[in-house]
Design a protein around this nucleic acid. Structure first.
Lengths: 150, 150
DNA sequence: TATTGTTATACTCTATAACTATA
DNA sequence: TATAGTTATAGAGTATAACAATA
């Protein structure tokens, strides 16, 4: 069995990152917007503060992001009956539809690449996916927000 | 041998992407800035237009990015003796040092996670890395620039 | 007094359009 | 006329600081 060189893995992940940028260019939705929308889709409505924490951005940044999502009809702010200060953010039907379209486009783009990959390589990747998922599950729950990006 | 479900792979890559965002938060350098700097580090000096194409951004965007890199002492513009219109961009020592520090920090962050991963999972990931690299090599050379991000 | 969210301000990063200088 | 690069302008996305409203 091959040994796992951390430096090699880090470099490889970086290349995977560029791969992802290519097969999923942020035409319609920024990465953070898409990620927040996915959180709302999979885990249901969230408070604005929770959402900011989950995505690793500040509260003001999330206020603005949610405002843009709301303006575009992808999410909705609701009052929290239990707490007059709070806001509960919810994904809309249009938001779900957009996520679905993005997923399909990504798979479509990937398929072209995969068709050119050797069966052995495809098998190696398939075998590693569960391990990758467990790796990401090891992530500590989000913490301090980033500084800038892209 | 496991079969490779494209939808599953796309979803998994997306999770890897979040993993990367976590282990490599863009504190000092944006993703595009880091990527451009890496290109200059690995492949040597480039014309501004080449760099824009390689990173998938427009020429004006690269003009500004290079200006910021230059302002921060990470890259340098040189005149092209062979073409009076052209500019050749080069990484500086400080630029290389910054890349090195980022790499080390990323490996450091990854190591903590990997220590908690089972040997079997680590082996599966190690076995898949070459396949991932071949997958990214299949990417067509960059084309139309993205629209926005973060 | 502490928490939730918003507003104000500033900077990065990106795009398109219009421009300058050289080939 | 075409190419390389810059400048002008606009908008997304982010941060910190200051604020309002509710708990």
């Amino acid at each position: 069995m091959a040994d796992l060189d951390h430096t090699e893995l880090a470099a490889s992940l970086e290349r995977v990152f560029r791969l992802l940028r290519r097969i999923s260019p942020p035409r319609d939705l920024s990465l953070t917007a898409a990620s927040a929308l996915r959180t709302l889709d999979q885990d249901g409505p969230h408070r604005l503060t929770e959402l900011a924490g989950a995505e690793g951005v500040t509260q003001p940044a999330m206020t603005q992001l949610v405002s843009r999502l709301e303006r575009d009809g992808l999410a909705r702010r609701n009052a929290d009956p239990a707490d007059g200060r709070a806001v509960v953010v919810e994904i809309t039907k249009a938001g779900r539809a957009l996520l679905r379209h993005r997923r399909e486009a990504r798979v479509e783009n990937l398929s072209h690449l995969l068709a050119a990959l050797s069966p052995a390589d495809a098998a190696a990747i398939a075998a590693a996916l569960p391990a990758f998922d467990r790796l990401t599950d090891l992530l500590p729950q989000p913490r301090e927000p980033h500084t800038q990006e892209p």
